[in-house]
Every structure is written in structure tokens, then in C-alpha cells.
Design a binder for these strands. Structure first.
Lengths: 138, 138
DNA sequence: CCTACATCCTGTAGTTACTACAGGCACAAG
DNA sequence: CTTGTGCCTGTAGTAACTACAGGATGTAGG
């Protein structure tokens, strides 16, 4: 391997390392059309450039923010179109934010229930565990 | 259909309605061994009783509390064994509670980031959406 | 008793977002 | 020249269901 890999020409492994996206996932993104098919070397190896790097970073960040791949596609479509307004992006984000808040609320209710019941059987010696009893009730 | 279906003998549809568990899911649970194979009628239709009803309710409640099927299996194993102590159940529950709290924390960080960036592009007229810009940065 | 129509049967494939091989070619260092 | 690493394709596995396809059965009304 060259000591200084050209930043503008990356192998799939290089791209994977730079973005932190699993190598197999990069190929997966290509298969499902999230990432474009890159040019190939003579031997058929994928060659990526700055644009690919930017795009994959975008995808990774979006995923980290909890956007589904479908939502990522929508965001990319806006970006690819070039004529996106901040408003469109804002709407997608608000929708997502709403879902996230919903999930948080659900989990918090769940947490309360679990903590509650769990307290009741903190003492490991009780024979008829109240938690189990609760689970049997609708 | 009989007007008063015998409570102690349920068809798969009846069990599904009583528990709120999707009919296909009931069969799925049987396939993967979460629910036992029930006796069949002459024509091969599944016949369920009170025990099945209790068990499926247990599974449903557990799933609603966010336990994975693997965890549900563990809980059922304790119950089936009969000699479970409250302590064992408590441990499983605490582990799960820990995961739930972790998820909540993750989502809250995510929520903050989303809300933050989304505020920046509340005005739909800005051309270079700061959110999109953020996504392009690692 | 016959005809609808709901319900049941099995088995397979689709969903989300990856991850993990299997089996094989390519290339560079020592 | 061998060894090791990286890359290739294509398929199968993961969680927890859901959705058919294609066919048999059960039941209620006329």
C-alpha cells in the first residue's frame, strides 16, 4: 500500500475507514442506490473520490440522527435536485423530530412501569414474584 | 359461528381476538417454539385452552414492555421451570431497564441535536440550509 | 340441502438495515 | 515465490413479524 494514499482516489476500504461506515455497508448502499456506482480500476476495484466521501458522510450523519434510509433518500433527492428550500428540509426534520419525541415518551412510560414492578420484587426471596403475576394479567 | 363461544376452547382467530395478538403472529410463535403446538380438531384446526390464553397474554405483555423474544424465552423458561426465584426475574428486568434507559438517553441527545439544527432553518427562505450543511460535515 | 362467505390450513417471500460468509482473483512486500 | 491483505460477487442470516398464494373447511341463511 502507498504510504500516502491520494485523498482524491479512495479504495472501498479507504472510504470505509474515513467515514466509519462498514465496508459491506458501502457496497450495500450501492446496491440499493443510495450511493452511485463508482468507476472501477482495470482489475475491477471500486475507485471513490471526494464527492463519494461527502455523500457517504451525509448518509452516515443522517443515519446517526435516526433518519430511516427512506428519509435519507428523500433528503438526498432534495440535495441532488439542487433547488431545495430550507423549508422542505425543515419539514422532513420536524416530522422526524416528532417521531423521536414519540419514541422517547413511549420508552419513558415503559421505564416507569418496569421500575415500578421491579421495585416490588427487589427482595429476591419472595416466592410468588409480583412481576410475573403482572405479566399474566392483561 | 356459535353465539357463545366456549371460553375454554378457542380457535386461533378467537385467541387472536382475545389477546390482541395478530393471528399470523400466533402461528409464528408456535413455529419458533414460544407457544406450544396445540391439539387439533378433526379437520386439523388448532384448539386452544385457558393455559394457551394465559401464556400468550404473558408473551404479549412482555413484548409490550420491550422485552425481546429471547428475553421472553428466558422469562418463560423460569416460569415453566416453576422453581424461579423473584431474584432471577428481578435481574432480567433490571438488565432490560438499563437498556431502556440507555435508549432514552440516546434519543434525547438526538432530539436535542435535531431541535437545535431545525431551529436554525425555521425560516423556509434561506437558500443554503444549515441543516444540510451540517449533514455534510463529519 | 345448497350456496356464500368467513375462517382455517401450509408454506414461502417480503420488510428494515445491515452483517457475515463462501469461494475466488489481484497485488505488494519480503 | 510465497504470504498476506484487500478486493470481487452473490447468497444467506439477523429480529420480529406481516402478507400473500392456493386450497380446504365450517357455518349461517334461503
Amino acid at each position: 500500500m502507498a504510504i500516502h494514499e491520494d485523498v482524491t482516489v479512495l479504495s472501498i476500504g479507504g472510504l470505509s475507514k474515513r467515514t466509519g461506515v462498514n465496508l459491506e455497508t458501502v457496497r450495500y448502499y450501492e446496491n440499493i442506490g443510495i450511493m452511485p456506482k463508482p468507476p472501477r480500476s482495470a482489475a475491477g476495484h471500486r475507485r471513490y473520490d471526494e464527492e463519494h466521501l461527502k455523500r457517504l458522510t451525509f448518509v452516515k450523519r443522517s443515519r446517526e440522527l435516526g433518519f430511516t434510509l427512506k428519509e435519507v433518500r428523500a433528503l438526498l433527492a432534495l440535495v441532488d435536485g439542487g433547488d431545495y428550500s430550507c423549508g422542505e428540509v425543515h419539514e422532513l426534520t420536524l416530522n422526524h423530530l416528532h417521531e423521536v419525541r414519540q419514541k422517547i415518551a413511549d420508552l419513558q412510560r415503559l421505564e416507569a412501569t418496569l421500575a415500578d414492578i421491579s421495585d416490588q420484587c427487589a427482595d429476591g426471596t419472595i416466592p410468588d414474584c409480583p412481576f410475573i403475576e403482572t405479566l399474566f394479567r392483561a
